[in-house]
Amino acid sequence: MATNTHMRSSDLPISHEGFLEHKRFRYLKVALVLILISVIVYFVADVGARHNGGTWLGYALGTISALLIVWLMFLGIRKRAATAGHWSLKGWTSAHVYLGSSLLVLATLHTGFQFGLNIHTLAYALMVIVIVSGFFGIYYYATVPRRMSDNRAHRTQKDLLDAIRALNRELTEAAQPLDPKYVNEVKRAIRKTKIKPGLLSSISSAQRQCATTRAAKRLRRAMETADESMRRPLETVVAILERKSALLLRTRRHIRNKTLLRLWLYFHVPLSFALLAALIAHIVSVFFYW
């Protein structure tokens, strides 16, 4: 059997490449060539006493890196500008990833490994943080979508939330025949259950704090000691609570996945702007105060 070589990241039976493989790793190759040339020149070129940003090679690497940073930031505009033309955002992303990563080498060579407590090293450090946050992004982009698809099982977020609301109605109805203390327990469970957790609990995805889950546990225990007449209705309510708890778990996972896919951007993007500012300061200071 000929293997399904054209089935790449999914089982979609047509040939298509994700952003990492775009055009058979075209931008990975470009980045590698760029790095290779820089490294060779770095070791071969005669720049006087020692490497630093002020040599001809330093200026060259600095200029290339600065232009790259500015261009990399243009992705934000490219992404949002739905214009006509033969551009592909996937191609842009691919180039962004590989050329952005190449900065780790290019800019490091530009420094000539001279670091200190100054604006120049600040710019460098910011750049490294931005790139590392980008690596997190790549990691999440490569791993989360598949998990997210498994978890949501064809359902949209709206479907999930609608289903939870429907269960709430069912709960209210099913709780009618119960003793007031149980009814209050159910009501409290409905009221106190937060679907959309705060940022931290969303990434930790802990279900322990969930009011619904706790209520389900408590009422199941209560069932053992409850009156004979209460047992059946309690059972119904507990069953719904448990269903809701399962659904909540799924919904929270969905939200957690969505958060993971976005969280890194909250570092990546603002830090990029900080980097841009530091970069400008670095360039200005170099030309005016050197």
Binding site: S9, R80, A82, A84, L89, P145, R146, M148, L261
Partner: peptide
């Protein structure tokens, strides 16, 4: 249009581009 769910990050940029163009 089909979407490869192992690559889709749910950014909805497809919808946004569709609306904007």
């Amino acid at each position: 249009l089909v979407i490869d769910e192992t690559l889709c990050v749910g950014c909805d940029n497809c919808e946004k581009a569709c609306a904007d163009i």
